[in-house]
Nucleic acid binder design. Structure first.
Length: 348
DNA sequence: ATGCATGAGGT
DNA sequence: CCTCATGCATA
């Protein structure tokens, strides 16, 4: 008897994909940079012998590599380049509508900011966690890909919140528990409570599964809520929300939206929940560059030494590893983001 | 569940 | 060029 709900293509609506606009603004500046170890040392101290650093990092990586294989070959990772600018004819799914205004949150910044002086933790993810892939594929995923032509409908002005804050001096306390500082948030939004977010995320996931909806379904369904400024979100984002792998600000901003959806979905389920829809999208290929393990190791070694390499250094690293400079630059950006995400290990 | 990428907005 | 929020393509 177990019964499981599994995944039912329950899609609240066929596909409503409107151009997603997300007027929310975000902004958050670079405040955390203040904690960076060597703000501009790279130009100074290392200028003379940054080679040493590079070599050192390289040596580090090299040791590992050598230990395993003598010499990997040259992985040609980046083969993508979707230069396909297919004109926006009418290709369905050719999401030509790239207009999305990301940013939803940004009311304040989140804590997190400490950098491992050299604890080279990089990301060590966890990878591999198979096991439950339950809801895998809905027979008919509603998701995405809207296809509409590019009619430029500018709704504009939905909700533009602007705000600014000063660099430095922000940073909040991770434990606010019910206490939001008295900062008068004029708008009235402020609820930086990590603990609550955590529990909400968990409850959300459970109820979502109960409804038999996949993460992708949720993201697509959001558009139907017609909340000003909120379009659909991807499976990735829903997943990250559930696993708390988003910045604190991002979590706070998304919570109300997802909460609204959950509410609506449970209500709708009661009423009528039949509306399977099959849709199909067609083609679009954006290739994801794949950086091989050896190269990744080197990058991690460099990152441990200098998380924010200069353009020149990035170029040098790119050349040594046979990667495109942009790939290396983006890699560093992503590492920094990962390092900052909601990881309250230090504060908790 | 995650890696690499794009883009808006800010310096 | 960076940071942030997000997304597509994947493992």
């Amino acid at each position: 008897m177990m019964s499981m709900n599994s995944k039912q293509p329950f899609s609240m609506h066929p596909i409503l994909h409107e151009p997603k606009y997300t007027p929310l603004h975000s902004s958050s500046e670079a405040i955390r940079r203040a904690c960076l170890p060597t703000p501009s040392l790279q130009g100074n101290i290392f200028a003379g012998f940054d080679e040493t650093l590079l070599q050192r990092a390289e040596a580090l990586a090299a040791v590992d590599i050598v230990a395993q294989k003598s010499h990997p070959f040259k992985p040609d990772a980046t083969y993508h380049t979707m230069t396909t600018m297919t004109s926006m004819t009418c290709t369905p799914t050719s999401s030509s509508a790239h207009l999305h205004h990301p940013s939803v949150l940004t009311s304040h910044h989140h804590p997190a900011h400490h950098q491992p002086a050299q604890g080279l933790e990089g990301d060590l993810l966890d990878h591999l966690t198979p096991g439950i892939s339950l809801g895998g594929m809905p027979g008919s995923d509603v998701c995405s890909t809207a296809s509409h032509t590019a009619h430029a409908a500018h709704m504009s002005a939905i909700n533009h919140m602007q705000h600014h804050h000063h660099p430095q001096s922000m940073n909040m306390h991770p434990h606010a528990l019910g206490s939001h500082s008295s900062l008068g948030a004029a708008g009235g939004e402020a609820e930086p409570d990590p603990r609550e977010l955590e529990s909400f995320a968990e409850r959300f996931k459970q109820r979502r599964i109960k409804l038999g909806v996949t993460q992708a379904d949720v993201g697509a369904a959001l558009a139907s809520l017609k909340i000003p400024g909120v379009g659909c979100l991807s499976q990735s984002t829903i997943c990250r929300f559930e696993s708390l792998t988003l910045s604190h600000n991002n979590m706070v901003a998304l919570k109300p939206i997802l909460e609204a959806w959950l509410d609506e979905a449970e209500r709708a389920q009661r009423e009528k929940m039949s509306k399977p829809e099959i849709f199909n999208g067609g083609d679009k290929k954006r290739k994801r560059t794949s950086i091989a393990a050896p190269e990744k190791r080197s990058l991690e070694a460099y990152f441990a030494v200098q998380p924010r390499p200069s353009s020149e250094k990035i170029a040098a690293i790119a050349e040594k590893l046979d990667l495109k400079k942009n790939v290396v630059r983006v890699w560093f950006c992503n590492q920094r983001q990962k390092q900052k995400r909601m990881k309250f290990s230090a504060t908790h």
